[in-house]
């Protein structure tokens, strides 16, 4: 059984009973500030046996609660609905990790497109999309595919390339503090955070804070990638002289200082 949340009201209003045979259908949640679009999309999906609208909402706050009350496979999200809402996409993903998000936009630009795909959006479609293409898009994304137009492909690949080159380009290498170098040195010797903390006279949490800062600074995501980065950029050849002193000095407990 599924409930439909009225677009006019914030309260859930049971309106539909779904046949048991409909269990394999792709469950869709509509999030759109404009009633005309919600009505239109429901009509488009109503004639498709394998697509079922389980809820519709008109604002982000209602969307968050609907995600928990009405499990869905696909979320059709109007981009205007999340303008000015901090971390809307990650919050949606946190509340419904399995849901596949399609964003509808009036106009797309490179930065927003790349950022949305990076954050986990599966497809971006124009508001002017034809009904047939909308149905096809929902089916594809419901099946686990990604829906991306040619322009967005170029943008995403460019972002990927520039990110990769910024990591492998020595000119863009950020400077590491002696303490950060000392921690990297310990890491590459196979020491655990606890052992590093003991050696440097601080707590495990401080080491974790430093490590997170190092990862963010260098754009790496784990210890092996950190070692490869240092090897590629010959970090210790350039800055290694500063490490020995840092290993001798006890560290202050707390978050890494601005160095």
């Amino acid at each position: 059984m599924a409930d439909i949340i009225s677009g006019r009201s914030e309260e859930a209003v049971p309106q539909e009973v779904t046949p048991a045979t409909d269990r394999a259908a792709i469950r869709i949640l509509l999030a759109d500030s404009q009633a005309i679009y919600r009505v239109g999309m429901r009509k488009v999906f109503a004639v498709e046996d394998d697509l079922r609208v389980v809820a519709q909402v008109d604002r982000v706050e209602n969307l968050y609660s609907a995600l928990e009350r009405h499990p869905a496979d696909v979320l059709l999200l109007e981009s205007n609905l999340i303008i000015g809402v901090t971390n809307a996409i990650p919050e949606i993903m946190r509340r419904a990790p399995e849901i596949k998000i399609i964003v509808q936009t009036v106009a797309s630009d490179e930065a927003n497109t790349v950022e949305m795909y990076r954050r986990g959006v599966r497809g971006i479609i124009p508001r002017s999309i034809s009904p047939d293409l909308l149905v096809k898009c929902v089916r594809k994304i419901g099946a686990g595919e990604t829906w991306i137009d040619n322009q967005s492909v170029t943008w995403v690949i460019e972002a990927y390339r520039s990110q990769a080159s910024s990591i492998t380009n020595p000119k863009s290498q950020p400077r590491l503090s002696p303490k950060e170098l000392a921690i990297i040195s310990c890491i590459t010797q196979g020491k655990r955070n606890k052992e590093i903390a003991f050696q440097l006279g601080t707590t495990e949490q401080v080491i974790k804070n430093y490590l997170r800062k190092i990862y963010d600074k260098l754009g790496v995501s784990d210890r092996l990638e950190l070692a490869l980065y240092c090897l590629h950029h010959q970090i210790h050849k350039k800055d290694g002289k500063e490490v020995d002193g840092a290993l001798d000095k006890p560290m202050a407990n707390g978050a890494p200082a601005q160095e």
């Binding site: 034809s130 991306i148 995403v156």
Partner: peptide, 12 residues
């Protein structure tokens, strides 16, 4: 609307 291509971007 340009040609839409469902890609195997999942890996990326």
């Amino acid at each position: 609307h340009t040609e839409l291509v469902p890609l195997e971007f999942e890996r990326l």
